[in-house]
Write a protein that binds this DNA or RNA. Sequence first.
RNA 1: GCCGGGUUAGCUCAGCUGGUAGAGCAACCGCCUUGUAAGCGGUAGGUCGUCGGUUCGAGUCCGACACCCGGCACCA
Length: 668
Amino acid sequence: MTKPFQIRLPDGSVREVEPGTTPADIAAAIGPGLAKAALAARVNGELRDLTRPIEGDAELALVTARDEKDALELVRHDYAHVLAEAVQNLFPGTQITFGPATEDGFYYDFAPSPERGPFTDEDLPAIEAEMRRVISQDAPLVREVWTRDEVRAFFEKTGERFKAEWVMELPEHETITMYRSGEWVDLCRGPHLASTGKLDPNAFKLTRVSGAYWRGDQKNAMLSRIYGTGWLNKKQLDSHLVRLEEAAKRDHRRIGAEMDLFHLQSEAQGSVFWHPNGYIVWRALEAYMRRRLDATGYREVRTPQLMDARQWEQSGHWGKYRENMFVVPDEIPSTDDEAPILSGDADLMALKPMNCPAHVLIFRQGIKSYRDLPIRMAEFGCCHRNEPHGALHGIMRVRQFTQDDAHIFCREDQLIDEIREFCDLLDSVYRDLGFDNYAIKLALRPDQRFGSDADWDKAEQILREAVHAAGRDTEDYGWEELPGEGAFYAPKLEFHLRDAIGRTWQVGTIQADTVLPERLDASYVGEDGQRHRPVMLHRAILGTFERFIGILIEHHAGRFPAWLAPVQAVVATIVSDADDYAEEVVRTLRAAGIRAEADLRNEKINYKVREHSLKKVPNLLVIGKREAEERTVALRPLGVDARQEVVSLDAVVARLVAEATPPDLRPN
RNA sequence: GCCGGGUUAGCUCAGCUGGUAGAGCAACCGCCUUGUAAGCGGUAGGUCGUCGGUUCGAGUCCGACACCCGGCACCA
């Protein structure tokens, strides 16, 4: 007989068990409570099925619902599995593909039979019901090791084309496992719970359907994806659903309408109509950014909206980016109703999708010395990109946008410092704007690109080093590298923020580019008297005003900090006798630079409080007979639990002025 | 661009199996001079996204297109 295995438990104790023992056996040996609560096990750190025998001496930790991260991952993966089984029960002929756990749930991608067609929302209740039935069967989930050929033969026989294709691409040495629940079998790496009955039939909900390309490639078949959210118990599910409702209330499109910030309409799809209120936010943000850039050695420029196609050919945009550009014929349209409006053979111009080529053209004016570098050239540049229709999203993803763009022309030996300084500036700006949480990614060379591999090796390495030097390549910053996601001319560091419902958006970026200076022949005279190529750093902090304001709205739920708020104070009267004094208060506030309005309407104070609260006005100054007589105001800051206090006119002006001062202009 | 859903009054939405439109809020008018998140009453407001088809008759059924929403792909 083989000798017993030594199993070390988290409390440090060691148990001797016979070969063939499973984590479930050990849990049972420790106690019936644990046996019942155990969902899976970590064996030498690896998450495994409870019923999979231990193969040797090991560290073992049993995973229960208390280990929430592991437990949720397991449960969600199992829900996906149950979803697939339910769908195949209800719709024979549907092929299965993949179904992973996601951040708050799971999905499964199916290839429905052609007769059946893609799933719709209306299918979901029946599928949910079938999932509950599958769960109630409480079938054990059994892990089986198969050979590649067995799996392929099996799926070819059952008509599972996608699974048969996939198994052949698994790495040679990988152990191929199938999981069986009752009659149903799926190719799956696992691990799974011991049986479907471990799932709470009331802790999941199918949320939506969508299309998704097989293996994420547009060239492949469109599959039908079903999304769900899944939790350990109903209470968690319910609170998640409440969170979703709350998040919907923060939606920038909804708040944009409520606060009268902007609108969109189909005649200018993908372009924003900024209303006076929204444009105040924009201008405050722009003024702030301009001060920050002025203070850190940037010089602002302004470049043409339209440039000749030949210029875009030279920069490389025509070849690699044309499908995203708006092209305009350089021709006076015919006014003759009988004749075609355009001849069709005019020279072409294009609206700029980026500011970089124009900045190189400025750089090229006159001879630059190494002493002139770095040159930090900034532009609040308005760009147009012809985005795919399906990509447009509120003001977060639009076709006309304004970037807080800048290009830093520098020598190679200046790169690391420039990037590090940029990271510091970006960090400081994000904090000023209320974001202390952002993620940094490094997007590496894409398939479609200019420049030699050696250039890319160098550029990628510089960005890595600079982030490391800035101490930001850590888990706190969600640091990761994204192969294939760089721009066509350069790798980029991406800075991401989260929206109300947890989607992340790239805002800031910095890209180290040696290609464009080469293509557009930018050079400087070095210490050695020779011409050298500068490196160009493309960088933005907000990214675009449109997207950034969208995120600001959602992040603050419309309650902008006072310095950004469209209206900073409303003076609301209780009785009309106070009108004159209220108008005086507004005049005084405005003279002090506060964006203040009077509300003298014949309405109850309750009505006015409610209305201005919904408009997220940060300060409500209530004036009744008493305040008018005493030359005070009742200051009621925005917020349900805000206490109001009666203060003198002078005091309220001082307080609001302090609050409305942008963060970079505040004392200390 | 791809898959699914949607488009009815300024906003949010109802309108079953086809018989020329309805609520709440907002707006307007009147009453109320009001004390911290909706005071009361009244009036007006829509060629039901666009175009075409089926039908005696279309908001409702069918088709095309446009836009919006959720994903996918693409991206700031």
